[in-house]
Design a protein around this nucleic acid. Structure first.
Lengths: 223, 223
DNA sequence: ACCTGAACACCGTTCAAGT
DNA sequence: ACCTGAACACCGTTCAAGT
């Protein structure tokens, strides 16, 4: 007698939506690199090929997962000036991405925007335009904001390495002569800021908002 | 009688440097996704495991390839004000990345900076500091610049889809009602700008410099 | 018409055997 | 001591066979 990983009696029919949502929650657990068609199928107690009924291939699955995340972003608040509307929407996108740490990396690898992504960008352009910005300025603004429109920045080397705090300090001391300027900043951050939580000792939310406001200032001055 | 893919008589000894440079040129030809340890080994007429003498694993190979690219960036020009020095260096990095279209994507996937990358960032911090910017401002400036320090922006969906120009226009017409704001910008770009070359019709170099200058303006105002 | 599983053409990497 | 190739544990996806 063969028993399945999952109870077959409790089995609901597969739908594209269920496939995508389960893929998101699997990625939350194992990361986007750990996500495979085979593991996802296992999640349903189903043969890998069964997924291909709902999704043409893995790329389409990944696109769909991005759509699920975008769906978590709040709609623009009504009746606000363009700057507030843009700012709040971006911060909402950021909160969604922070809930799914793999999502920004995934977004980076998409080669074609899905309709959902296009709609998101269209709405964002609309916020600038309705605020009275010219086509040209809006166009440049969109390029300037880049991935910040989706609530993230290129996170180069940001992964907090799992290292003991006292070891980390020693490591930086060792780097002091080779990378004096990096060291200097490291020192200033770890000494000044008592509220530092994890990572490389930077307050990522502060840095994100600092850059965001600097950009919005710059755009405002173009008007 | 068995002949090798490459002439064995002409074979120089493998070195880490040769491995990395050949990996870069292989990636130039087949893209970074097409690059595998097995194909790279074939390039030398060697068994895959032979590479592991010079590189601990594939991650280290990829890190090394980034270092090769960084090595192509010009040193900061001497005697310039901080703004010019930073600007020129970033544009030099951009030129290096444009020579290897896969490189920015690769950079995005690195999880730990190599010594070469750290040295690059250290020099960049030095330019700000030598220009008289405070530690705090410099720190925020580095975060704000983000991947632009390496000469690229998050290129979300920028890959020019291989589509016939007349088809592209028709596609956008079809989108006109669904994504009115995107359409409006598309129209303004394709009509105004006669010098548009390839891609989505945007002048990427202009957009990059526009955003770069906007950021440098913003940083300057903080001083 | 639908679902399935074996098979294909790849991966990166381990490891024991060969020289 | 060095190099090698078979083998392992995975992939995404094709395709023909089963119901």
């Amino acid at each position: 007698m063969v028993t399945n990983v999952r109870d077959r009696t409790a089995r609901e029919p597969l739908t594209r939506d269920r496939v995508l949502r389960t893929a998101v929650s699997l990625a939350d657990r194992v990361g986007v690199d750990g996500l495979s068609m085979r593991k996802l199928a296992q999640e349903f107690g189903v043969v890998p090929m069964a997924l291909y009924k709902h999704v043409a291939n893995k790329e389409e699955l990944l696109d769909g997962m991005v759509d699920v995340i975008i769906g978590e972003v709040d709609s623009p608040i009504a009746g606000a000036d363009w700057r507030t509307a843009v700012r709040e929407r971006i911060l909402s996108a950021r909160r969604a991405l922070l809930r799914h740490p793999w999502a920004s990396r995934l977004l980076e690898t998409r080669s074609t925007p899905t309709p959902t992504v296009l709609a998101y960008m269209d709405e964002m352009i609309g916020l600038f335009r309705d605020g009275g910005l010219s086509l040209d300025i809006t166009h440049h603004a969109m390029h300037t904001m880049g991935s910040r429109l989706f609530g993230f920045t290129q996170e180069l080397f940001n992964d907090p390495p799992p290292i003991a705090p006292e070891l980390e300090a020693a490591l930086y001391e060792a780097m002091a002569t080779t990378y004096p300027h990096v060291y200097e900043i490291y020192r200033s951050v770890t000494h000044d800021d008592a509220s530092v939580v994890g990572g490389h000792g930077c307050d990522d939310q502060f840095e994100f908002e600092f850059a965001l406001d600097l950009l919005l200032d710059g755009i405002e001055q173009q008007v």
